[in-house]
């Protein structure tokens, strides 16, 4: 039978009309509302620019000192601090200082944005199974849809620049913090929660005295994941106009500059390792009280 030989797809003309319809509708929408939406994101833009300038214009020894201090505060480990200092010295020596600062700026802003959005969203999700059922597939889509696909509408709406890049990074980096906040709160010992309840805690007291602190190790694992995923998006963000190490990687790919590619790639790796080690060590220190043994 003919119907089994070829899939009964919509006709070429119908399909074209459908696609056109969607495209025109969206471009009309973005033409009408693009400016308003851009206006909405202006504060974000301002933040990004300000922070990037701050990092790039600060004297490099001061920045290295700040990174070293932050690494110490987070990890309390001399090897990690020394590793951090050496990495940044090498990065600077190879002429990648400014690009690295730009990348650190977007990663930091993206991470704070994801934390600010993701933790409340995760709390909301942990409160109700229905909310969880709605949000989970959205997170799945955010993590699995090829990044280039959502770059299209983002660029149509906001053009090329820092803010669309930041949004692209956040779309990819947001899910882990939401998931792990939700999971962390749901995994809180039922009996401890019952105790909080039995002593007459109200909702806020339960959330801030019991659920959040007990979920913190999981939430922190989420923060770590979010940072790593944001770093993974650096090159793709560069495609839509975010400055930083990603731009050089793109340049290297299109021109077959091996050395440039490797150097910038390794700089991204160095950032990833530093962020990861420091945040993991910090996460572990948060859990110190869980270890047994007297006189700790």
């Amino acid at each position: 039978m003919a119907i089994f030989d070829e899939f009964p797809s919509m006709g070429r003309a119908d399909l074209m009309d459908l696609k056109k319809g969607i495209d025109f509708a969206f471009s009309d929408f973005s033409r009408e509302n693009g400016e308003a939406i851009e206006g909405f994101f202006d504060p974000l833009m301002f933040c990004m620019v300000w922070f990037e300038k701050l990092l790039m214009n600060a004297p490099w020894p001061l920045m290295i000192l700040i990174f070293a201090v932050l690494a110490w505060l987070g990890a309390r480990s001399i090897p990690i601090v020394i590793g951090t200092i050496i990495s940044f010295l090498i990065i600077g020596r190879f002429g990648m200082w400014e690009d690295t600062m730009a990348t650190v700026a977007i990663i930091s802003v993206a991470t704070f944005l994801c934390i600010g959005l993701g933790i409340p969203l995760g709390i909301l999700m942990s409160r109700s199974n229905r909310v969880q059922a709605v949000i989970t597939p959205v997170l799945d889509i955010m993590q699995t849809i090829p990044s280039f696909v959502y770059l299209i509408p983002v660029v149509m709406l906001l053009g090329i620049g820092k803010v669309p890049g930041l949004i692209a990074v956040c779309i990819y980096a947001l899910p882990p913090i939401v998931r792990l906040t939700n999971l962390g709160i749901r995994l809180v010992d039922k009996e401890v929660l019952e105790a909080a309840e039995a002593f007459g805690s109200n909702y806020r007291q339960k959330l801030f005295d019991v659920q959040m602190p007990l979920a913190l190790p999981n939430i922190f694992a989420g923060v770590n994941q979010t940072i790593m995923m944001a770093l993974a998006m650096v090159v793709i963000a560069a495609m839509i106009g975010v400055k930083g190490l990603g731009v050089n990687v793109l340049k290297a790919v299109s021109n077959q500059y091996l050395a440039l590619g490797i150097m910038n790639g390794l700089a991204i790796v160095a950032l990833a390792v530093i962020f990861d080690r420091v945040s993991q060590a910090y996460g572990k220190r948060l859990q110190k009280h869980r270890q047994g043994g007297h006189g700790v």
């Binding site: 309840e197 039995a198 002593f199 007459g200 805690s201 005295d209």
Partner: peptide, 21 residues
Amino acid sequence: LREFRRNKMSMVFQKFALLPH
């Protein structure tokens, strides 16, 4: 009910249910 739980009744649990942090 919250006031009642705060002032009238308190509870001890089988698995202690202390705040580990």
